[in-house]
Amino acid sequence: MRQFSYSRPDTLDAAQRIPEHTRYLAGGTNLIDLMKSDVERPKHVVDLNALSMSQIEERPDGGLRIGALATNADTAAHPLVTERYPLLASAILAGASPQIRNRATNGGNLNQRTRCHYFYDPDMACNKRSPGTGCSAKGGRNRIMAILGTSEACIATFPSDMCVALAAMNATVNLTGPEGERSVPLRDYHRLPENTPWQDNILRAGEIVTSIDLPPLSFGPHHTYLKIRDRLSFAFAIVSVAAGLQMENNTIRKACIAMGGVGTKPWCVPEAEALLEGKTPSPSLFRDAADCLLQGAVTDRDNAAKLKLAPRVIIRALSQAAAGTPQSQTQKTIF
């Protein structure tokens, strides 16, 4: 960790007037970790915690707005979330540990960085950390790296669980910055690495995530967050699937599906959703959806297991959603 200046402004306006090399601090569970490892080297740290952005409130359209500073734990436990967006609660609870979720915020979760081993180790070449140095993960120990959306420059996953559910539900991210406010669909918020992997998302300098809007949406019991990982708790996803289905007389009216652990961003394929809509659930239908979701997947040295597992996890998640038996995050049996 290198010396930095610290400030804690109490207006959004002040928080946006920032010099170069600034990082915002929310819960700090990711940023501080990276600073200790010398991966993030901000000259200025601007603490957002004096701003009031931790609301969880209903929207006029029947949707929900969750504040960027609301903690992951509070969000997952909020009655409006557990009643109306259990898929989101489930995805949050599938991640990290209670201690970390108590501290981690929704804005921080959106902006957390990859867990790529090489990104985390300043002795190693990494285009995301040090543009132009190369990608050590290619041909290296890349069991945890992505198989979808990768580029020559970077194959790292975006590791969030919460964002997978948000992507499935087509949430919207509200931003405010020196150039004003804007709203961006979550599916467009994170970027593919292409040849600029250091840009994880579309956030501009001085821009702050203020809240996330969830559309009015109900799947009833027909949803699930199924996460496969190297141990049964407290590990990032090898493959995860967030699925929500609106069912009508055993027909899928609307399908929302996103994947985590496999993509360089929360992975959504609208064609796969379209393919499910208007159909009756069946294993072969789900297999088609899996094929569609995984189109273009490329494996590297160590991560073929992801491609082997992914279709099975998709099929199982869709079966759970169709049957109305969401995966429990405490009971580890997968139904």
Binding site: D121, R141, R231, S233
Partner: peptide, 18 residues
């Protein structure tokens, strides 16, 4: 020549659930 998962996030010892 380096062990790359050199932290408790990626070197997995069993969690209670295991």
């Amino acid at each position: 020549g380096r062990f790359m998962n050199h932290n408790f996030s990626e070197y997995h010892i069993p969690a209670h659930a295991d």
